[in-house]
Design a protein around this nucleic acid. Structure first.
Length: 206
DNA sequence: AACGCGTCCAACCGCTGTCCA
DNA sequence: ATGGACAGCGGTTGGACGCGT
């Protein structure tokens, strides 16, 4: 009866659970998560199994040590896409959406806030010395910002629309209302070295 | 040593989209 | 056309850990 319904297991995964999950996925592949959970004899929901696999057990996962290059890419992609973590992760081989989201929330969002408040404080006269990577980043942010504006303008021309409120962009456009570009084209990975920034530059040029 | 506080990250939750009967 | 099951996503939470006092 109702009492027969067992509570599902929650919380941290044990090595034993990981092993069982891995075994079943090896046999039937990463699909039908509910079935996987049952077959593995895990008292967990399919969702939880999927998450564990995607973020931890999947082969070729990179963990920690996000390089400058990767960070740079995340910043730029976030500028373009907002909080669409899975799309951003798609451009960073071996990285998961969860990791990128965490990295953004713990590192980059703070950096961005800091930067913003610095800009406010120093106003137009920005005289302090910058590291080369900071300089580069700033230039690139300007560029992608420009592109966003261009895309927005295109759209506005089409619908000869409303006011130009977009300027005061919440830097992420997290609602994504302002972003307008060809997602299919953007995520055509056929010609890869994903960390090669050429692709994004050429995209931004169009 | 012990406490408080901040940070990080794994995992959960709730919602939306997609598929299929 | 519709409704249920499942997959996937982004936001949020909570526990572990490190560090300063």
């Amino acid at each position: 009866m109702a009492a027969m319904k067992r509570e599902v297991n929650k919380g941290a995964w044990t090595a034993e659970e990981d092993r069982k999950l891995g075994e079943v996925i090896e046999i039937q592949g990463p699909k039908k998560w509910k079935t996987i959970a049952v077959k593995a004899g895990l008292n967990r929901c399919g969702k939880s199994c999927r998450l564990r696999w995607m973020n931890y057990l999947r082969p070729n996962i990179k963990r920690g040590n996000i390089s400058d290059q990767e960070e740079d890419l995340i910043l730029r992609l976030h500028k373009l896409l907002g909080n669409r973590w899975s799309l951003i992760a798609g451009r960073l081989p071996g990285r998961t959406d969860n990791e990128i989201k965490n990295y953004w929330n713990s590192h980059l969002s703070k950096k961005m806030n800091k930067k913003k408040s610095e800009k406010k404080q120093t106003g137009a006269s920005l005289t302090r010395e910058k590291t080369s990577i900071e300089k580069r980043r700033e230039v690139e942010e300007e560029t992608s910002g420009e592109i966003n504006k261009m895309a927005i303008t295109k759209e506005e021309n089409k619908s000869s629309g409303d006011e130009n409120e977009h300027e005061q962009e919440q830097e992420s456009s997290s609602s994504n209302n302002g972003i307008n570009f060809n997602v299919d084209e953007f995520f055509d990975f056929s010609n890869e070295d994903p960390l090669n920034l050429e692709w994004i530059n050429s995209f931004l040029e169009t």
